[in-house]
């Protein structure tokens, strides 16, 4: 199993992070972050991801109803064609429902983020896995964003921008808002200029 990405390293002290039922603890000091210990996403990520999934399911459901309805009402529909379209719609819905039910938990289990003196490391992915490393001195600027669903769960997306081209934005989705702010403070604290 250790030939896989990411290797199953258990976080040493997940208890520092907010607990699923308790209120978020005091903001984490930047010095605590850069410890090189892999951290999990916030536990409420699972519920958040699932809710976003259901929103997607609802959108696809609504679009399908409208689309198929319009097709039905418009010039005498060919039943065979309608059946094929409806079948595809149902299959897509089933797939979305299945991923919404099962993937959020898997995603949370696989995801880790680590801040060390060298920089930020993000592991993610269930089927297609990746580990992204951004050296600390290459951080150009950072964003902390919070969508409407994320706000409900007190979550945020932390975005690191580099001067790169293909992966100039590295996103860490599903950390507590306070953690995201602490990450920002930690990664920007060095204030490393680009020497230009």
């Amino acid at each position: 199993m250790d030939d896989e990405l990411p290797p199953p390293i258990e976080p040493a002290h997940t208890d520092v992070r907010p607990t699923p039922d308790g209120a978020p603890e005091a903001p984490i000091a930047p010095s605590l972050l850069a410890d090189g210990v892999p951290q999990r996403l916030d536990p409420s990520y699972v519920a958040y991801d699932r809710l976003s999934g259901w929103v997607g399911v609802a959108v696809v459901f609504a679009l399908g109803v409208v689309g198929l309805g319009a097709f039905w009402i418009s010039s005498e529909p060919k039943l065979a064609k309608l059946a094929v379209l409806a079948g595809a719609w149902v299959a897509l819905l089933a797939l979305l429902v299945a991923t919404t039910l099962f993937l959020p938990r898997k995603r949370w289990e696989r995801a880790r983020w680590t801040v060390s003196r060298a920089g930020l490391e993000i592991r993610k992915g269930v089927f297609f896995r990746s580990i992204t490393n951004v050296p600390r001195s290459r951080v150009q600027h950072t964003d902390v964003t919070q969508g409407p669903i994320q706000r409900r769960f007190g979550l945020a997306t932390f975005v690191v921008h580099t001067a790169g081209q293909q992966h100039s934005e590295v996103e860490l989705e599903g950390v507590a808002f306070d953690v995201a702010k602490a990450l920002r403070d930690d990664l920007m604290a060095a204030g490393a200029g680009d020497g230009a």
């Binding site: 030939d3 089927f127 896995r129 490393n133 290459r138």
Partner: peptide, 27 residues
């Protein structure tokens, strides 16, 4: 080097391989 990324498709995982991508500021 701007960032370093390792990625693994399901096939990569079966073969115990990974792909390394290096990002630079050049297109």
């Amino acid at each position: 080097i701007q960032s370093v990324r390792l990625s693994q498709t399901p096939l990569d995982r079966m073969a115990r391989m990974a792909t390394l991508s290096i990002d630079t500021a050049g297109p």
